[in-house]
Each structure stands twice: as structure tokens, then as C-alpha cells.
Design a protein around this nucleic acid. Structure first.
Lengths: 168, 168
DNA sequence: TTGAATTTTCAATAGTTTTTGAAAATTTTA
DNA sequence: TAAAATTTTCAAAAACTATTGAAAATTCAA
């Protein structure tokens, strides 16, 4: 396979992958393009490579910056802004975990804490069933939260080494 | 908070949560409703509780069955079909992990294996950069794949006990 | 069998999300 | 400061996804 084709395949499948994870296709494609680009890119580079409008590039690069996955780079002597992606994939994964934990897991756990204190007779089947499920999710969720905290702090070596040994 | 309100909140936030994970809102809501229902439900029960059409219930229950999260139940002497959800939340999580691994991670890894063998001079900056990223993702992906395999086979006690100790 | 009950299908519609592109705002250079 | 280059915004349009509901198919009891 030639590089041009491989590049297209990578970008397109990274985009499809992203949609399964609640990330919009274009944002994931821009990220993919930037991951494999050795040098920083401008808005125009991205527009051209992916055939999308300037507005689209602007919105999605901003969002990627919010996620902490790319950053603006000013090249000395250049008028245009450049963008550059974090290339260490373990750092990328940790950053995504960190953000999603904050945006999704933590609010959910807050809600579950409230829902567990629902009024009503715990001998009633409906009430009992509700509390059991909520408590179960809460317990596992808090556990996952702690585990992910540790992961976010960890080095890749630690993950690939120690954890995997344990899992064997 | 009263049970009725707590129920609504749980269903609605589980639905919103689902959309962040590439699952459609209604499918997640049906799943939520069934998790907290002590007894199996019919299509009509679900239609009424969530105010959605029969067709919608039918499609989404089928999809939940494909995901292995609910099952059809025949109650003796009853004409209608009932549906019942797996209530053990650890089993639910493992089932979701298993499915997503099969649907998303494994195809991605297959593609990466191909992309790593891209033609071209590895001294060229573009080619080098491409191979480095692809190899990095591949390596971490295969590691994650193995780890998830072990998790899918594990008991909850194992997870909450051993893993967490290690993570402290 | 028959026909009533129930489930399934799917074309049409409604709703949501993404993308465009041109105008406005901002930044930089001279 | 002026004006050229660049970035940002956002209303409108396009694209995509989910939902409805009625007709078709299936199942079941008698």
C-alpha cells in the first residue's frame, strides 16, 4: 500500500472510530491527519487535505484544543497560525480519559449519590429494585473513577509492564 | 425525592450518557427502564412508560438483544412477549466491553496491522512519522485488547479486590 | 383451518447535528 | 493609522439519524 492510500485509510477509519465514541467525524479526522503529520499544519492545509470548509476547520480545531489534544504553534517569521498534535499516544489516551471522566463519569456519580436516597419503603419491590441497581452502578462507578485516576497519573511503562503481568 | 421522579431522572440521564458512547438515546432509555423494573416488561409497558411508538420499541429491543443486554421471556399462560434485563451491573459492563471490543477495537487493530507495512523509504520524514504513529497505536491497542480479554473473563471480586490494591 | 392478537417492517416524516460560506472581527505589517 | 491577511462567528442549508404509524407478517388458541 502506498503512503497516500494508507493515510486516507487511517484518517477515514479514525473518523469512523470517533463516531462510536461520541466524537464527531470531522474532529476525529482532523486529529488523525495531525497525528501523522510530522510538521505543524495551518487551517488551509487541513481544509485542502480533508476537503472541508474554513469554518468547519476552525470549530473543530478549537474543540480539539479544548480537549487538550492539539495546540496552537506560532512559527517565527510566519503570519499564519499552525496547529500541532501530541504524538505520544499514551499521553493522548490519558488526556481523553481525563476529560471524559470529568465530563461524563463524575456528573453521573453525583446524580447516583442523590438517587440512592429516594424516599419510600425499602420493602416495596419497586423501591428495592431501584435502589439495588443504583447502588450497584454507583459502587462500580466509584471504583472505576479511582482506577482511572491512577491510570491518568501512570507512566506507559507501568501500564504495559506491571498491569499486564497481573492480568496474565 | 419520590420514586417516580428518581426513575425519570435515572432514565433520562442514562439516555444522555448513552449518546456519549455511540448508543442511541432511546435504546439507552429502554435499557435504563428495564434495569430498574423488578418484573419483565411488554412492548406496551415500554411504549407507555417512555411515550414512544411500537416500531421504535421493537427496533430498540431487538438491538438490545443483539448487544446481549436483555432477553425475551415467555411467561406461561401469557400471549405477549416479555423482556427482562440482566441486573448484575458487572455482567452488564463485561458484556458491553466484549461487544465493543469485537465491533470496534478488533477491526481497528486489523487495519493498523496492514497500515504498518506501508511502502516507501523509512528515512523520509512523512513515512517515518506515519509508521511511528501507527505502530504506537497498534502496540497500545493490542495491549488494551489483551487486558480487556482478561477483564471479560474476570469476576467482580477480582476487579474490586486485586486490581484496586495494585492501583493504590 | 380461521381470525384475533401480537410482532415486525419500512417508507415517510420529524428532529438533530454538521457543514458551509460570507460577513464581521481581529491581528499584523508597513 | 490604514489596509491586507487571517481568524472567528453564525444563520442558513445540507446531511444524517431517529421515530412514527399503518400495513404486512407471524403466532397462537380454539
Amino acid at each position: 500500500m502506498k503512503l497516500a492510500e494508507a493515510k486516507q485509510q487511517f484518517i477515514s477509519s479514525w473518523g469512523a472510530f470517533g463516531t462510536h465514541w461520541g466524537i464527531n467525524r470531522t474532529m476525529a479526522q482532523i486529529h488523525a491527519l495531525m497525528l501523522i503529520s510530522p510538521d505543524p499544519l495551518t487551517q488551509d492545509d487541513i481544509m485542502e487535505e480533508l476537503n472541508i470548509s474554513r469554518g468547519n476547520v476552525n470549530m473543530n480545531t478549537r474543540e480539539l484544543i479544548n480537549w487538550g489534544l492539539i495546540e496552537r504553534v506560532i512559527l517565527p517569521g510566519e503570519r499564519k497560525e499552525y496547529f500541532s498534535a501530541e504524538k505520544d499516544i499514551w499521553k493522548v489516551v490519558k488526556q481523553i480519559v481525563k476529560e471524559r471522566k470529568k465530563r461524563e463519569l463524575e456528573p453521573m456519580l453525583k446524580l447516583l449519590d442523590q438517587l440512592e436516597n429516594v424516599e419510600g419503603d425499602k420493602k416495596e419491590k419497586k423501591v428495592k429494585s431501584f435502589i439495588e441497581i443504583v447502588s450497584g452502578i454507583k459502587k462500580l462507578g466509584h471504583q472505576a473513577d479511582k482506577t482511572l485516576d491512577t491510570m491518568v497519573k501512570a507512566e506507559e511503562n507501568w501500564f504495559v509492564g506491571n498491569l499486564i503481568k497481573l492480568f496474565k
